[in-house]
Design a protein around this nucleic acid. Structure first.
Lengths: 129, 129
DNA sequence: TTGAGTGTACTAAGCCAACTAATACACTTA
DNA sequence: TAAGTGTATTAGTTGGCTTAGTACACTCAA
């Protein structure tokens, strides 16, 4: 389900977060689907349950999952998380574009770096940020 | 010349780096202009010379300044540094655009986030990355 | 030539935040 | 009730940052 890379300098809980987020965004994990329990995933990855808990906590605060004490953790409906993350990434995107422009990059050269038009994510209808 | 913010969680050497880089990119420091010596700047900011040295070392490795033993450190011609940084930022830009697209952002919505066309940086003729 | 000022290199130590671990508690459900 | 779950608290470890001290080689003006 998720693989850890101990050579990676990034903390384990972030690798877990990214792995789960990827599975969620890609649709491999469906909304309301049950995630592995904190202890189960910890055992599988041979790390401490608290590390998993931290990943789950942050994913919850970012709107990707929701947790119920005694029951488990589940995938959140995507709309909320997507909107929040898109807003965050859009701001980064804007700042990056501004700096590149200040460094002399042309508008056309930036547009050339954008992904081709045809291949949107999966489903969902488009909305402008 | 540079101000430190101890509330900022970023390390001091990075604040020094960013401050100098800003002065260089903005043109406040001209190419071949002499930077304050490691010891002088350390005294002025009331920090250890090694911290300044680290900032200078990294700025040099990134192409913003060059140092000559016995003489001092000087502002590098901008072209080299700009190209290196543009390459680095362009990759970030590309990855960011890709993730935003996966989240459902349209190509048009990303283009709308780019700075308006008219106002390039300062001088220098345009080159495509 | 000499001395002051410069960059550079190295080692050691302290500090602190981030990370991980261990344990205990509270909740849900069969 | 018992097993499985999320949650909270505390403690230990680690690595990055910073400082300190020392030393060396170079440049340049007096």
């Amino acid at each position: 389900m998720i693989s850890l890379n101990y050579r990676d300098s990034r903390p384990i809980y972030e690798q877990v977060k990214d792995g789960l987020r990827r599975l969620i965004v890609s649709g491999a994990l469906r909304p309301d689907e049950k995630l592995p329990s904190v202890r189960a995933l910890a055992t599988q990855l041979a790390i401490n349950p608290n590390t998993i808990q931290r990943a789950y906590l942050e994913l919850e605060s970012e709107g990707y999952i929701y947790s119920v004490a005694g029951r488990g953790s589940f995938v959140e409906e995507r709309t909320a998380a997507d909107k929040a993350r898109r807003a965050q990434l859009s701001e980064q995107f804007r700042a990056l574009a501004q700096e590149l422009t200040a460094l002399g990059a042309t508008r056309e050269s930036l547009i050339a770096l954008l992904p081709p038009a045809g291949d949107a994510g999966d489903d969902k209808k488009e909305e402008t940020t």
